[in-house]
């Protein structure tokens, strides 16, 4: 009984220690995800433009960034690029995770766009709309609904992979866990708690995604009565 109380005490101490930096994990993942969204949308659309060079460029971006381990990217951005143009840990870390996830997001956006029936393009074009107008008013609004579930999953993955930036000294959840474990030699309890906090974050996101999916999947497709 005493042992259990003691353990719970330790765990709650660790929890309070970690919860003070959890906002950094959230900030890093949200910023990285925003970059990923922008890169993804841009390169996803670029992948299917008529301009051969832009298409090639987008393909190269996607293949290179998907083909290199994220950890290596983080090292490259912080130790490599960071030394040359003087990047702060946070900027380097967020950029590395952001552009990496941008490559995955680009493929998700591309598949979302390609999933729309070609007849939609033809109808829009026959009304005199340009490619850009067609994309903006007809294709993308329909693609977004398809893209929501996989894009949200990428955010969950992004949140988990944000733990990798701990290696360049960004004090987020994983880094703080390492500090605590090293200081008090409480590895088992610390990593248990770190894992638990990540789990709480990802599970609440999963719930949120379900809500979003419902909201976006039905709206506008006319199956529902107003």
């Amino acid at each position: 009984m005493n042992w259990l109380v003691e353990q719970l005490g330790i765990l709650s101490k660790i929890f309070y220690f970690l919860i003070q930096v959890v906002h950094w994990t959230i900030i890093i993942s949200v910023l990285a995800y925003l970059i990923a969204l922008i890169c993804g949308l841009f390169f996803g659309v670029a992948r299917i433009t008529s301009n051969r060079f832009i298409r090639w460029l987008a393909g190269a971006y996607i293949n290179v960034l998907r083909g290199v381990p994220l950890l290596v990217l983080i090292f490259f951005f912080y130790f490599g690029l960071g030394k040359i143009i003087n990047l702060d840990r946070l900027v380097a870390g967020v950029l590395a995770v952001g552009v990496c996830y941008g490559a995955y997001m680009a493929e998700i956006f591309r598949s979302g766009i390609e999933a729309i029936d070609y007849g939609q393009h033809e109808a829009a074009m026959s009304l005199g709309m340009t490619r850009w107008q067609t994309l903006r008013h007809i294709i993308l609004p329909q693609s977004f609904r398809i893209v929501v579930p996989p894009a949200a999953n990428e955010f969950i993955a992004c949140l988990k992979d944000s733990s990798l930036v701990s290696i360049i000294g960004l004090r987020e959840l994983t880094r703080a866990g390492r500090e605590y474990a090293n200081q008090y030699f409480l590895d088992f309890q610390t990593w248990l708690m770190v894992g638990l906090i990540y789990l709480i974050l990802t599970l609440s996101l999963t719930r949120l995604v379900k809500v979003l999916e419902k909201k976006f999947a039905v709206h506008g497709y006319g199956v529902e009565k107003k």
Binding site: G119, Q120, E122, A123, A124, S126, I138, P141, Q142, G220
Partner: peptide, 11 residues
């Protein structure tokens, strides 16, 4: 132009 499959914008 009017198409066989309507191609209305479903959204």
């Amino acid at each position: 132009m009017v198409f066989q499959n309507f191609n209305l914008f479903p959204h």
